[in-house]
Design a protein around this nucleic acid. Structure first.
Lengths: 251, 251
DNA sequence: GTCTATAGTTCGATAGAC
DNA sequence: GTCTATCGAACTATAGAC
């Protein structure tokens, strides 16, 4: 008999996933608190915990983050985190699931729109669709901006089992669609080079999302990695140049 | 009165950095063990600790790594690590210093050689000089290959104070030389775009050094990020294409 | 130099009152 | 749902024998 809750869907509310001991009377399911049917309410400590976790994981990494700091930042008791998310691993995945679902839906729609209007889009537009939803989500985000983007950087570069499993589950399917798209906008690009092109594009994009401030240092104040719009412009130019160079020189 | 030792140079042997209490007789400085004057001997537990630390930091990150695991892997007592390196932070820096010095010397020489023989080199050669020494060091490395490269990925993508300080200290100077070199091989490239070009190149390079295995997954077994030579070929093509696209389209 | 043993701290997770 | 209190485990670092 395990005491864990919420074993299934990582974002399911009301975590009574174990057995059906619901009918023992007293304070049942929905008590006094207002719980919206769609489950995506602002306020509520549930969301506060996710926001705090996102910020702390982004700043300190998975191992560097502590449940205590997350609880403090969210303004809740540490025990409440375990009530809602069971453990650290599940909390981390929940942070990712919350954003990845919405972002990837957007990315998929942008991509579909590009190919739905008769003529073929430019590769520049495909690359823009690759990053735009993520950086936009990063900007409108909780407190200090860019938290989720930094978590994506961790996911992209880590070899850890935990990170690779999450990347595979939440990002591989959409990645394949972008690889297909690149082969359509650059017909000379063979499959191997299309995959490399995608991987390298992600690598360049991580430079933007990491926001380490190094470009500012190296350029003496000229290249600001906080100026997302300018950086997007440069990145799209660079990536498309790289892709076309691969297409021109196959083997 | 602090008990810390080895406060200065992170790789100084015989850590008696505190005061001059050397003349109290008995077992003095060099006792029975053979210590080579150049200080860079194989065997010896000092080196074993650095090798183990490199592997464990690479696999688990700074916070995920534990002194216990490093000690076990090195086959030494945990206390010995603190005798040689004082604490975790200094051990981490020592791991970086050991490789970065040698690698960056090589990179600097390769770069100087390219520009010393009369005519201007190709950008392709500059980009090769950027990565070749690092990946070669990664291959000839301790046990399982590529450990240090993965530590560089951490360094490049982290916003943490510790990582940024190390990157600045050990990698910013050589970075500026490569940025200068790019402006010489691509005269149309203005300074801002040269810095972006360098940052993006590093981003692409990190894709190679991270070796997550994702390209293999996405390509159904075709794109092997363990095949360094093939990947280098693709990366050089891609990066040069990107750089030239930036040079062609300034603003 | 190298080891054993352990002090002192912090972490993730649980128990139980309300 | 939410909080307080705490347990047991793991961590870094130190002390002291050899």
């Amino acid at each position: 008999m395990v005491t864990r809750r919420n074993d299934g869907n990582a974002l399911a509310r009301n975590p009574a996933g174990d057995d059906a001991a619901e009918s023992q009377g007293g304070r049942n399911a929905v008590a006094g608190k207002v719980i919206r049917i769609d489950g995506r309410d602002e306020d509520s400590r549930f969301t506060a915990i996710l926001d705090a976790a996102e910020a702390v994981f982004a700043a300190s990494g998975y191992d560097g983050a502590t449940m205590r700091e997350i609880a403090e930042r969210a303004g809740v008791a540490q025990g409440l985190i375990h009530y809602h998310f069971s453990n650290k691993q599940k909390l981390f995945e929940s942070v990712i699931v919350r954003r990845a679902g919405h972002i990837n839906t957007q990315r998929e729609h942008m991509l579909a729109d590009l190919f739905s209007c008769g003529q073929l889009p430019r590769t520049e537009q495909v690359v823009a669709a690759l990053f735009r939803p993520t950086i936009e989500s990063g900007l409108s985000m909780a407190r200090d901006g860019g938290g989720f983007a930094r978590i994506l950087v961790m996911l992209a570069n880590s070899t850890g089992e935990r990170e690779q499993a999450l990347a595979q589950k939440h990002y591989d399917p959409i990645a394949l669609k972008f690889i297909d798209a690149l082969q359509r906008t650059e017909p000379e690009l063979n499959r191997e080079d299309a995959v490399w092109a995608y991987m390298f594009a992600i690598g360049v994009g991580m430079t933007m999302m990491a926001k380490t401030g190094r470009s500012l240092r190296l350029s003496g104040g000229v290249c600001d990695d906080g100026d997302i719009e300018r950086m997007m412009e440069k990145i799209v130019t660079y990536i498309c140049g790289g892709i076309r160079a691969l297409a021109r020189k196959p083997d």
